Simulated scan of single mutants.
Amino acid sequence: MRNPPRVAMVAGETSGDLLAGLLLDGLQAQWPGLKGQGIGGPQMERRGFDAWWPSERLAVHGYSMEVLRRLKGILRIRKQLRERLLHEPPDVFIGVDAPDFNLGLETDLRAAGVKTVHFVCPSIWAWRADRVDKIRRAADHVLCIFPFEPELLAQHGIAATYVGHPLANVIPMVPDRAAARAQLGLRDEDEVLAILPGSRSAEVAYIASPFFQAAALVRKARPAIKLIVPAVPLLRERIVQLAHASGLGDGVQIVAGQSHAVLAACDATLIASGTATLEAALFKRPMVIGYHMHPLSWWLMRRKQLQPWVGLPNILCRDFVVPELIQDAATPQALCAATLEWLEARTRQPEKITALEQRFTVLHESLRRDTSRLAADAIQKLLAA
């Protein structure tokens, strides 16, 4: 075994890049000088990762036309990456999330004798239970971010380790609301609604307008409210256009990135389903989860859904602790009404806010582990076997 080992990785999208960057911290503590190569984003590159392709090239949304338009290019990248890794095999390949891309690649590499790790168990407990067989073929080991997953995988003969959720360590148990507001130019006494319409272009295309229309209705009911949107830099111009088209004009503050500061600063958030909802829960913020996708994508997803919840906070709490308005239910009027309930509860039902914060604190504690070290230890043991 080389010291450090040669590590290849693939991370798709912004959330995968963040998780992979934290994993690299642990690997580099275990093996100083380790860099990694493959597909990654800015968080990984900051740790010296050699990104042959940027992770944003893998970002897709849903099943149908929005995927088909980009499928040819994604398959070409996977073919080229597979050939390169088979020609010069790494000591270990780590697929970070992006199961549609990574599981097939892992299967081929594992068949060729490469040790394979999948970081983030696909949500077989929520939908697409058929992926279990694919995971068994693809991964020598799975790194799980939720505590119940290793036992579930063990029932199917898949080795796994619970490493905690990296975001639970990044986000403080008690967020500094005042500091976040100062950073964003907001006053302590301001009432603040955060709007997070997603980090992918297709998400923004489907849900941003209903969110902004709902925010305009909220502002009519509460004229003094401050509206703030953390935008992925590449999507900022499009988000500005959609906000103006929805009648918000200059009444919304759109910032580049800074989603954690925005969540720490807000009183409530209107948020697209995805990893960001877990971030909002870790910041202990009331939220309304909304989502909309291509009708065919929605039909296919509904057929494979195993639980009544869509949002991660509700799935992990196993209860509708925050409202979910999905697909046809995600109308501006319904989104506005649900948001106003949270805002009004701060003065009329403070116990409702307190109860939510307590649920999210328990959730935060259950996810808090030394993720970088635990993940690196599991990989070290796999390589030593």
Rank of each mutant, 00 (worst) to 15 (best):
L103W: 09
T331L: 02
V310H: 01
M287L: 14
T275N: 07
V114C: 09
A98T: 06
H165G: 01
I315Y: 03
Q305F: 01
I77D: 09
V114Y: 03
A194V: 05
Q183T: 14
F283G: 02
E365A: 15
V229I: 14
A168N: 06
F146P: 04
V67E: 11
S64F: 15
L85V: 09
F360W: 08
W52Q: 12
E149Q: 01
I94T: 11
A280I: 04
D328Q: 14
W309R: 03
L22C: 06
V232P: 03
F101K: 01
V229H: 14
G274S: 03
I39K: 06
P32Y: 07
G62E: 10
Q333C: 10
G48F: 11
A51C: 14
A245P: 02
P175W: 12
F320N: 01
F360V: 05
P147L: 02
Q183F: 02
A334L: 12
L325I: 11
E344Y: 03
N3E: 12
Q333G: 02
T161K: 00
V92G: 07
I353N: 01
I239G: 10
K134M: 04
A355R: 15
G290Y: 09
W52V: 07
D328T: 14
F146H: 05
L71M: 15
I77C: 10
W53Q: 12
A265N: 02
K352H: 13
I207E: 05
A129V: 03
L335T: 13
D267S: 01
I124T: 02
A337T: 14
P172H: 03
P172T: 07
K284D: 00
W31C: 07
R303F: 09
Q358K: 14
R373N: 10
E357C: 08
L68N: 13
D108I: 08
F211P: 04
G62C: 12
D377Q: 15
F360H: 07
A221E: 15
M44W: 09
E324T: 03
R137E: 15
E66K: 08
I94C: 04
R373H: 08
K226T: 04
A29M: 09
R302S: 14
M287E: 11
I171A: 09
A160C: 06
F119N: 01
L152Y: 13
R302F: 02
H87I: 03
F212K: 06
I254R: 01
L75P: 09
M301V: 05
R302I: 03
E45T: 13
R368M: 09
A268Q: 01
